[in-house]
Simulated scan of single mutants.
Amino acid sequence: MLISKDQFLKFKSKITLESVLKMGIMLIVIFILFVASFALFRPISIEKYQHVSQLSLQATYPHTQSFAQHLQAQPQILMHEYLRLMRAYAYEAKHVKEYPAMAIEDE
């Protein structure tokens, strides 16, 4: 199945600079998505694991604490799970109201 010269010239005439640039941009975007997905599915570092351990021991934010304890039960924590924990921690820190301590006489 040899490609004849006429078929090659017809194919070459359909290719424009614009289509080549579009294909280049698409390849760059696909490469970025591939690298990002690879980075999200690798295990976390020791420092981040220690941070998860600290969050599992704190009692200020109970939902974050239970999520961190759940992550610690797993054999390895992936980066996207760690980022979900950090997002939950930030959300809970922003939305939880902390009231001042009451005196015993006020009860």
Rank of each mutant, 00 (worst) to 15 (best):
M1G: 11
L2M: 05
L2G: 06
I3G: 08
S4V: 05
S4R: 13
K5C: 13
L9C: 08
K10V: 06
F11N: 11
F11L: 08
I15F: 05
I15E: 05
L17N: 09
L17W: 04
E18P: 05
S19N: 07
S19L: 06
S19F: 03
K22T: 08
M23S: 13
L27W: 12
V29K: 03
I30W: 07
I30Q: 03
F31N: 07
I32A: 07
L33N: 04
F34C: 11
V35W: 10
A36M: 14
A39V: 09
A39Q: 05
F41H: 04
R42E: 10
P43Q: 07
I46C: 03
Y49S: 04
Y49W: 12
Q50S: 11
Q50W: 10
Q50C: 10
Q50P: 11
H51A: 08
V52W: 01
V52G: 01
S53H: 15
S53F: 09
Q54A: 15
L55W: 02
L55M: 09
L55G: 02
S56C: 02
L57R: 08
Q58V: 07
Q58M: 15
A59Q: 15
T60P: 02
Y61P: 03
P62N: 02
P62M: 06
H63E: 11
T64I: 01
F67G: 00
F67Y: 04
F67M: 02
A68H: 00
A68P: 00
Q69G: 04
L71H: 00
Q72V: 00
Q72P: 01
Q72K: 03
A73W: 04
A73Q: 13
A73D: 05
I77M: 02
I77R: 00
L78S: 02
M79D: 00
M79W: 01
H80A: 04
E81L: 00
Y82Q: 00
Y82I: 00
L83I: 01
L85E: 00
M86P: 02
R87W: 05
A88E: 01
A90L: 05
Y91P: 02
E92K: 05
A93V: 12
K94D: 13
K94Y: 10
H95P: 03
H95I: 04
E98W: 15
Y99D: 04
P100G: 14
A101I: 13
A101P: 04
M102S: 15
A103W: 09
E105D: 15
E105R: 10
E105W: 07
D106Q: 10
D106F: 12
